[in-house]
Amino acid sequence: MYSKGKEKTWKFFVLLCGLLMIALPIAIGIFLAVKGNALFYQYHHTLGEFLFTTTWKLKDDLVGGGKGGAAVFIVGSLIVCGLALLIAVPFSLAAAIFMTEIAPKWGTKILRPAVEIFVGIPSVVYGWIGMTVLVPFLQNVFHLKTGRSVLAGGIVLAVMIFPSITTVAADAIRAVPVSARMAAYGLGATRWQVTHQIVMPAAQTSVLTGVILGLARAFGEALAVAMVIGKTPAFPKGIFGQTATMTTVIASRMAELMEGSEAKAGLWTIAFILYLISLFFIFLIHIIAAKGAKKNK
Protein backbone atom coordinates (compact mmCIF):
# COMPACT_ATOMS: atom_id res chain seq x y z
CA MET A 1 0.00 0.00 0.00
CA TYR A 2 1.20 3.49 -0.77
CA SER A 3 2.28 5.62 2.11
CA LYS A 4 4.16 8.87 2.03
CA GLY A 5 6.31 7.92 5.00
CA LYS A 6 7.43 4.69 3.37
CA GLU A 7 8.23 6.50 0.16
CA LYS A 8 10.41 8.96 2.05
CA THR A 9 12.23 6.24 3.93
CA TRP A 10 13.10 4.42 0.72
CA LYS A 11 14.14 7.58 -1.01
CA PHE A 12 16.46 8.38 1.87
CA PHE A 13 17.88 4.85 1.81
CA VAL A 14 18.60 4.95 -1.91
CA LEU A 15 20.15 8.39 -1.58
CA LEU A 16 22.34 7.09 1.22
CA CYS A 17 23.58 4.22 -0.93
CA GLY A 18 24.35 6.62 -3.73
CA LEU A 19 26.27 8.95 -1.47
CA LEU A 20 28.18 6.04 0.01
CA MET A 21 29.22 4.98 -3.48
CA ILE A 22 30.67 8.42 -4.05
CA ALA A 23 32.16 8.79 -0.59
CA LEU A 24 33.98 5.46 -0.50
CA PRO A 25 36.45 5.96 -3.37
CA ILE A 26 37.08 9.51 -2.22
CA ALA A 27 37.75 8.30 1.31
CA ILE A 28 40.13 5.64 0.01
CA GLY A 29 41.92 8.26 -2.03
CA ILE A 30 42.32 10.56 0.99
CA PHE A 31 43.49 7.67 3.13
CA LEU A 32 46.12 6.65 0.58
CA ALA A 33 47.22 10.23 0.08
CA VAL A 34 47.74 10.72 3.83
CA LYS A 35 49.52 7.39 4.28
CA GLY A 36 51.62 7.82 1.16
CA ASN A 37 52.67 11.34 2.02
CA ALA A 38 54.54 10.14 5.08
CA LEU A 39 57.40 9.09 2.82
CA PHE A 40 57.86 12.66 1.72
CA TYR A 41 56.95 14.65 4.84
CA GLN A 42 57.98 12.39 7.67
CA TYR A 43 60.96 10.71 6.06
CA HIS A 44 61.99 13.59 3.76
CA HIS A 45 62.30 11.79 0.47
CA THR A 46 61.66 13.75 -2.70
CA LEU A 47 59.22 12.96 -5.46
CA GLY A 48 62.14 13.04 -7.89
CA GLU A 49 63.95 10.33 -5.93
CA PHE A 50 60.79 8.23 -5.77
CA LEU A 51 59.99 8.44 -9.47
CA PHE A 52 63.41 8.48 -11.08
CA THR A 53 65.89 6.50 -8.99
CA THR A 54 66.13 2.75 -8.81
CA THR A 55 67.37 1.77 -5.37
CA TRP A 56 64.54 0.64 -3.12
CA LYS A 57 66.11 0.17 0.31
CA LEU A 58 63.85 1.74 2.86
CA LYS A 59 64.35 1.03 6.53
CA ASP A 60 61.78 -0.86 8.50
CA ASP A 61 61.98 1.52 11.45
CA LEU A 62 60.74 4.94 12.52
CA VAL A 63 64.06 6.70 11.93
CA GLY A 64 64.33 6.24 8.21
CA GLY A 65 67.20 7.42 6.03
CA GLY A 66 67.01 4.63 3.44
CA LYS A 67 66.68 4.94 -0.31
CA GLY A 68 63.25 5.20 -1.88
CA GLY A 69 63.54 4.90 -5.66
CA ALA A 70 60.51 3.17 -7.19
CA ALA A 71 61.45 3.56 -10.86
CA VAL A 72 61.98 -0.18 -11.26
CA PHE A 73 58.46 -1.00 -10.13
CA ILE A 74 56.88 1.73 -12.19
CA VAL A 75 58.76 0.69 -15.31
CA GLY A 76 58.12 -2.98 -14.50
CA SER A 77 54.37 -2.35 -14.35
CA LEU A 78 54.44 -0.38 -17.58
CA ILE A 79 56.41 -3.05 -19.44
CA VAL A 80 54.39 -6.03 -18.24
CA CYS A 81 51.06 -4.30 -18.86
CA GLY A 82 52.19 -3.00 -22.23
CA LEU A 83 53.26 -6.49 -23.22
CA ALA A 84 49.98 -7.93 -22.00
CA LEU A 85 48.06 -5.42 -24.14
CA LEU A 86 50.23 -6.16 -27.14
CA ILE A 87 49.39 -9.84 -26.83
CA ALA A 88 45.74 -9.54 -25.80
CA VAL A 89 44.41 -6.82 -28.10
CA PRO A 90 44.86 -8.63 -31.44
CA PHE A 91 43.33 -11.81 -30.04
CA SER A 92 40.49 -9.92 -28.41
CA LEU A 93 39.63 -7.99 -31.55
CA ALA A 94 39.82 -11.11 -33.68
CA ALA A 95 37.61 -13.01 -31.23
CA ALA A 96 35.14 -10.11 -31.04
CA ILE A 97 34.93 -9.85 -34.82
CA PHE A 98 34.58 -13.59 -35.13
CA MET A 99 31.69 -13.83 -32.70
CA THR A 100 29.80 -10.87 -34.12
CA GLU A 101 30.53 -10.69 -37.84
CA ILE A 102 31.60 -14.14 -38.90
CA ALA A 103 29.77 -16.62 -36.68
CA PRO A 104 27.13 -14.56 -34.88
CA LYS A 105 24.97 -17.56 -34.15
CA TRP A 106 27.25 -19.88 -32.28
CA GLY A 107 29.40 -16.89 -31.41
CA THR A 108 26.75 -15.67 -29.02
CA LYS A 109 25.58 -19.10 -27.99
CA ILE A 110 28.88 -20.81 -27.25
CA LEU A 111 31.82 -18.46 -27.60
CA ARG A 112 30.45 -15.67 -25.46
CA PRO A 113 29.73 -17.81 -22.39
CA ALA A 114 33.11 -19.46 -22.91
CA VAL A 115 34.82 -16.07 -22.86
CA GLU A 116 32.80 -15.05 -19.81
CA ILE A 117 34.04 -18.08 -17.89
CA PHE A 118 37.53 -16.59 -18.15
CA VAL A 119 36.39 -13.58 -16.12
CA GLY A 120 35.21 -15.68 -13.22
CA ILE A 121 38.45 -17.62 -12.73
CA PRO A 122 40.28 -16.23 -9.68
CA SER A 123 43.65 -14.65 -10.36
CA VAL A 124 45.45 -17.01 -8.03
CA VAL A 125 44.41 -19.86 -10.32
CA TYR A 126 45.81 -18.04 -13.35
CA GLY A 127 49.03 -17.47 -11.46
CA TRP A 128 49.23 -21.05 -10.35
CA ILE A 129 48.67 -22.41 -13.83
CA GLY A 130 51.19 -19.90 -15.13
CA MET A 131 53.66 -21.12 -12.56
CA THR A 132 53.21 -24.83 -13.24
CA VAL A 133 52.64 -24.81 -16.99
CA LEU A 134 53.85 -21.60 -18.57
CA VAL A 135 57.04 -21.01 -16.60
CA PRO A 136 58.54 -24.48 -17.25
CA PHE A 137 57.38 -24.28 -20.84
CA LEU A 138 59.20 -20.99 -21.46
CA GLN A 139 62.22 -22.37 -19.62
CA ASN A 140 62.43 -25.40 -21.92
CA VAL A 141 61.60 -23.71 -25.18
CA PHE A 142 64.02 -20.80 -24.79
CA HIS A 143 66.63 -22.64 -22.66
CA LEU A 144 66.41 -20.23 -19.76
CA LYS A 145 67.67 -20.59 -16.23
CA THR A 146 64.15 -19.91 -15.14
CA GLY A 147 60.96 -19.26 -17.04
CA ARG A 148 59.87 -16.65 -14.52
CA SER A 149 60.05 -13.54 -16.62
CA VAL A 150 58.44 -10.41 -17.96
CA LEU A 151 57.14 -12.52 -20.83
CA ALA A 152 55.48 -14.98 -18.46
CA GLY A 153 53.86 -12.08 -16.58
CA GLY A 154 52.73 -10.51 -19.84
CA ILE A 155 51.18 -13.74 -21.11
CA VAL A 156 49.35 -14.48 -17.86
CA LEU A 157 48.03 -10.91 -17.74
CA ALA A 158 47.05 -11.10 -21.39
CA VAL A 159 44.93 -14.19 -20.73
CA MET A 160 43.35 -12.42 -17.79
CA ILE A 161 42.39 -9.24 -19.64
CA PHE A 162 41.46 -10.97 -22.91
CA PRO A 163 37.83 -11.61 -21.85
CA SER A 164 37.12 -8.08 -20.65
CA ILE A 165 38.42 -6.54 -23.86
CA THR A 166 36.67 -9.14 -25.99
CA THR A 167 33.27 -8.71 -24.34
CA VAL A 168 33.34 -4.92 -24.50
CA ALA A 169 34.61 -4.96 -28.10
CA ALA A 170 31.96 -7.49 -29.17
CA ASP A 171 29.22 -5.35 -27.62
CA ALA A 172 30.60 -2.30 -29.39
CA ILE A 173 30.71 -4.07 -32.74
CA ARG A 174 27.22 -5.42 -32.28
CA ALA A 175 25.97 -1.90 -31.55
CA VAL A 176 27.01 -0.66 -35.01
CA PRO A 177 23.71 -0.31 -36.89
CA VAL A 178 22.90 -3.02 -39.42
CA SER A 179 21.90 -0.27 -41.86
CA ALA A 180 25.50 0.93 -42.12
CA ARG A 181 26.65 -2.59 -42.90
CA MET A 182 23.91 -3.04 -45.50
CA ALA A 183 24.82 0.24 -47.16
CA ALA A 184 28.36 -0.97 -47.65
CA TYR A 185 27.33 -4.43 -48.81
CA GLY A 186 24.91 -2.75 -51.20
CA LEU A 187 27.85 -0.96 -52.79
CA GLY A 188 29.60 -4.24 -53.38
CA ALA A 189 31.91 -4.29 -50.37
CA THR A 190 33.33 -7.58 -49.17
CA ARG A 191 32.82 -8.75 -45.62
CA TRP A 192 36.38 -7.84 -44.76
CA GLN A 193 35.94 -4.34 -46.20
CA VAL A 194 32.70 -3.85 -44.30
CA THR A 195 34.33 -5.01 -41.08
CA HIS A 196 37.46 -2.95 -41.17
CA GLN A 197 36.23 0.14 -43.01
CA ILE A 198 32.71 0.56 -41.65
CA VAL A 199 32.17 -1.52 -38.53
CA MET A 200 35.49 -1.10 -36.74
CA PRO A 201 35.75 2.68 -37.20
CA ALA A 202 32.21 3.06 -35.93
CA ALA A 203 32.95 0.84 -32.94
CA GLN A 204 36.38 2.34 -32.33
CA THR A 205 35.55 4.52 -29.34
CA SER A 206 33.87 1.78 -27.36
CA VAL A 207 36.55 -0.72 -28.30
CA LEU A 208 39.15 1.67 -26.96
CA THR A 209 37.19 1.89 -23.72
CA GLY A 210 37.41 -1.88 -23.46
CA VAL A 211 41.15 -1.78 -24.05
CA ILE A 212 41.63 0.79 -21.30
CA LEU A 213 39.48 -1.22 -18.91
CA GLY A 214 41.69 -4.21 -19.67
CA LEU A 215 44.78 -2.10 -19.09
CA ALA A 216 43.40 -0.89 -15.78
CA ARG A 217 42.79 -4.44 -14.71
CA ALA A 218 46.30 -5.43 -15.79
CA PHE A 219 47.81 -2.60 -13.76
CA GLY A 220 45.93 -3.63 -10.68
CA GLU A 221 46.65 -7.34 -10.85
CA ALA A 222 49.19 -8.41 -8.25
CA LEU A 223 48.94 -12.03 -7.30
CA ALA A 224 49.11 -13.78 -10.66
CA VAL A 225 51.93 -11.54 -11.84
CA ALA A 226 53.88 -11.97 -8.63
CA MET A 227 53.81 -15.73 -9.08
CA VAL A 228 55.49 -15.74 -12.48
CA ILE A 229 57.59 -12.59 -12.80
CA GLY A 230 60.51 -13.44 -10.55
CA LYS A 231 60.17 -10.44 -8.21
CA THR A 232 63.68 -9.14 -8.82
CA PRO A 233 63.93 -5.43 -7.94
CA ALA A 234 65.89 -4.45 -11.03
CA PHE A 235 65.10 -3.40 -14.58
CA PRO A 236 64.49 -6.50 -16.68
CA LYS A 237 67.10 -7.54 -19.22
CA GLY A 238 64.77 -8.08 -22.15
CA ILE A 239 61.47 -9.93 -22.08
CA PHE A 240 63.09 -13.03 -20.57
CA GLY A 241 64.49 -10.95 -17.72
CA GLN A 242 62.93 -10.68 -14.30
CA THR A 243 61.61 -7.62 -12.61
CA ALA A 244 59.04 -6.46 -10.10
CA THR A 245 55.96 -4.32 -10.50
CA MET A 246 54.20 -1.85 -8.25
CA THR A 247 51.59 -4.38 -7.26
CA THR A 248 53.97 -7.27 -6.75
CA VAL A 249 56.18 -5.29 -4.40
CA ILE A 250 53.19 -4.31 -2.29
CA ALA A 251 51.82 -7.83 -2.24
CA SER A 252 55.11 -9.41 -1.26
CA ARG A 253 56.20 -6.91 1.39
CA MET A 254 53.12 -5.53 3.06
CA ALA A 255 52.73 -8.23 5.68
CA GLU A 256 56.27 -8.23 7.00
CA LEU A 257 56.82 -4.51 7.53
CA MET A 258 56.08 -2.49 10.63
CA GLU A 259 53.21 -0.04 10.46
CA GLY A 260 54.47 3.53 10.46
CA SER A 261 57.96 2.63 9.35
CA GLU A 262 59.73 4.22 6.43
CA ALA A 263 59.48 1.07 4.32
CA LYS A 264 55.75 0.75 4.94
CA ALA A 265 55.26 4.42 4.09
CA GLY A 266 57.02 3.72 0.80
CA LEU A 267 54.54 0.95 -0.02
CA TRP A 268 51.65 3.27 0.75
CA THR A 269 53.12 5.79 -1.65
CA ILE A 270 53.18 3.13 -4.36
CA ALA A 271 49.58 2.27 -3.53
CA PHE A 272 48.65 5.93 -3.88
CA ILE A 273 50.35 6.09 -7.28
CA LEU A 274 48.33 3.04 -8.38
CA TYR A 275 45.20 4.83 -7.23
CA LEU A 276 46.15 7.90 -9.29
CA ILE A 277 46.83 5.72 -12.32
CA SER A 278 43.41 4.10 -12.15
CA LEU A 279 41.84 7.54 -11.74
CA PHE A 280 43.73 8.59 -14.84
CA PHE A 281 42.38 5.59 -16.79
CA ILE A 282 38.82 6.39 -15.75
CA PHE A 283 39.19 10.00 -16.85
CA LEU A 284 40.70 8.82 -20.11
CA ILE A 285 37.69 6.59 -20.77
CA HIS A 286 35.32 9.48 -20.13
CA ILE A 287 37.26 11.84 -22.36
CA ILE A 288 37.30 9.30 -25.18
CA ALA A 289 33.59 8.60 -24.77
CA ALA A 290 32.78 12.31 -24.83
CA LYS A 291 34.88 12.79 -27.95
CA GLY A 292 33.20 9.81 -29.60
CA ALA A 293 29.75 11.18 -28.80
CA LYS A 294 30.73 14.51 -30.29
CA LYS A 295 32.09 12.94 -33.44
CA ASN A 296 28.89 11.00 -34.06
CA LYS A 297 26.72 14.10 -33.87
Binding site: S179, A183, G186, P201, A202, K295, N296
Partner: peptide
Amino acid sequence: VGMVFQQPNPFPK
Protein backbone atom coordinates in the same frame (compact mmCIF):
# COMPACT_ATOMS: atom_id res chain seq x y z
CA VAL B 1 22.82 -3.15 -59.22
CA GLY B 2 22.97 -0.48 -56.52
CA MET B 3 20.52 0.04 -53.72
CA VAL B 4 18.89 2.93 -51.88
CA PHE B 5 17.32 1.96 -48.59
CA GLN B 6 14.14 2.94 -46.78
CA GLN B 7 15.96 4.73 -43.98
CA PRO B 8 18.70 7.06 -45.20
CA ASN B 9 21.86 5.28 -44.06
CA PRO B 10 24.93 7.41 -44.67
CA PHE B 11 28.14 6.14 -43.11
CA PRO B 12 29.32 8.01 -40.03
CA LYS B 13 31.91 9.66 -42.23
